[in-house]
């Protein structure tokens, strides 16, 4: 199944802005490119029929993340450089090329995008959730049902991670004030 024009366009935007984050020398420019990238990714999630993930990505990835990054350079420094592009690092590039080739070699073994025989889509687990979610929980949105009911402990763990991260951020930044 060939990509639709929307999918192809979004992938080009995503890859282009990801490349821009890497090659732009200016950190602020890199952050702006990253937030464009996140927005493109959020739109791609909607195209892939995942509106919940799209909303989260737009709010958290493009919104909160950009604010955090901007706050960081506001609190620290934005190196001013005349050059627009970052200097190349050929040694890392060779390593990355090897990494990409090794990963790329596995791509032909993956199922075609959107194929109904793909293991995840045709698996018993996916079908179980789709068949039982409404009966078991009364929630029409299966993603919500799985998130809050079937995998509720997972979500509790997520809350613990967020709490721990909050504590860690306060601990790290507070010492700066007292020191």
């Amino acid at each position: 199944m060939a990509p639709t024009p929307v999918e192809a366009g979004l992938l080009v935007v995503i890859l282009g802005s990801a490349l821009a984050t890497a090659v732009l020398r200016d950190v602020l420019g890199s952050i702006i490119a990253f937030s464009a990238y996140s927005l493109g990714v959020a739109m791609l999630w909607v195209v892939l029929r995942a509106p919940d993930v799209g909303l989260t990505e737009a709010a958290v990835g493009a919104g909160v993340m950009t604010i955090l990054l901007l706050l960081t350079i506001a609190k620290t420094v934005r190196p001013s450089e005349d050059r627009v592009l970052a200097s190349f690092d050929p040694k890392t590039l060779v390593l990355v090329a090897a990494f990409v080739l090794a990963l790329g070699a596995t791509v032909p073994a993956l199922p075609a995008v959107g194929s109904p025989d793909a293991p995840v889509v045709s698996s018993e687990v996916s079908q179980y959730y789709l068949d039982h979610a409404y009966k078991d929980t009364g929630v029409e949105n299966v993603v919500t049902a799985v998130l809050a009911a079937y995998r509720g402990f997972d979500t509790l763990g997520e809350a613990v991670v967020v709490f721990t991260a909050g504590v860690a951020v306060v601990a790290v930044l507070k010492r700066e004030v007292t020191a």
Partner: peptide, 14 residues
């Protein structure tokens, strides 16, 4: 997300 996608599939809201 790609592994979850199926052509012609509906958003997972019953």
């Amino acid at each position: 997300m790609t592994s979850a996608f199926v052509t012609g599939g509906h958003v997972p809201i019953i």
